[in-house]
């Protein structure tokens, strides 16, 4: 495979052909914020947090392949301002009350807010009342904490091979749904494997019985599962 030479934040790095900017940057020790990306799953380019400047133009790092001679900036003032705005928009969209959340301390949304220095939200809280579904005997979903990253949809479809989850509705009314928009507990397809819980970046998907700050997701395990299957081939 041909190697590509490019510049990230002024430093020359080499990358494998077909690799994404995100992967190349990581190999070079440059961290780019992400939310919808999860190692082991396909990329959808939905959250827009990984946007970087390629020759001055904004490109999502997770879905843009490296090319010879690319000049990439990953952390300009403009990018920082946009990322902060995006996280603020998320906090204003649904009810993220960290103090009572099962995932507090283990939440990627919280981590993003901290790393971007987002100490307050400038936008009006939309404060919708979203459903909480605890019909499944072991798991639950609290839509108030869902950021619509669709990592659960992809983990269930691509790794478990089931496709229990999908999205219905449009705009801010969009919701992840199980099967034909029925309670999760009545889903005929769910194998109760728990992979969607592993994948979820927030406290939206949780184990029943977990209380505040107890729900530790383990998104790295998704990549482990995918990698180990590759090795077995």
């Amino acid at each position: 495979m041909a190697a590509k030479t490019l510049k990230i934040n002024g430093t020359m790095v080499s990358a494998r052909e077909g690799e994404s900017i995100l992967e190349a940057a990581r190999d070079a020790g440059v961290a780019i914020p992400t939310l919808c990306h999860l190692d082991g799953l396909s990329d959808v380019g939905a959250c827009r947090l990984c946007l970087v400047e390629v020759g001055g133009r904004l490109r999502p790092a997770c879905t843009t392949a490296v090319a010879e001679g690319m000049e990439i900036q990953t952390n300009t003032d403009r990018l920082h301002a946009y990322r902060r705005q995006i996280v603020e928009l998320l906090f204003a969209e649904r009810g993220h009350v960290c103090a009572v959340c099962v995932a507090s301390g283990h939440c990627e949304l919280q981590d993003l807010a901290v790393s971007l220095g987002m100490d307050h939200v400038r936008y009006e809280y939309l404060a919708p009342t979203c459903a909480v579904d605890i019909s499944h005997e072991r798991f639950g979903i609290d839509h108030n904490r869902c950021v619509l990253c669709v990592r659960c949809v992809r983990a269930c479809d691509e790794v478990e091979g089931v496709h229990t989850w999908d999205v219905s509705g449009r705009g801010t009314s969009a919701r992840v749904i199980s099967d034909m928009n029925q309670p999760w507990g009545e889903s005929e397809s769910c194998t109760s494997c728990g992979k969607c819980l592993l994948a979820c970046p927030t406290g939206a998907l949780f184990s029943r019985g977990a209380t505040v700050a107890e729900m530790e997701h383990d998104p790295g395990r998704i990549a482990l599962i995918v990698e180990s299957r590759k090795v077995r081939g």
Partner: peptide
């Protein structure tokens, strides 16, 4: 645009609502 946003990406999904407000 707010009503027709598919909801996939955050800036359009939530940004249009905030602009509309």
């Amino acid at each position: 645009c707010m009503d027709e946003s598919c909801g996939k990406c955050i800036p359009c999904r939530v940004g249009t609502v905030q602009i509309h407000r």
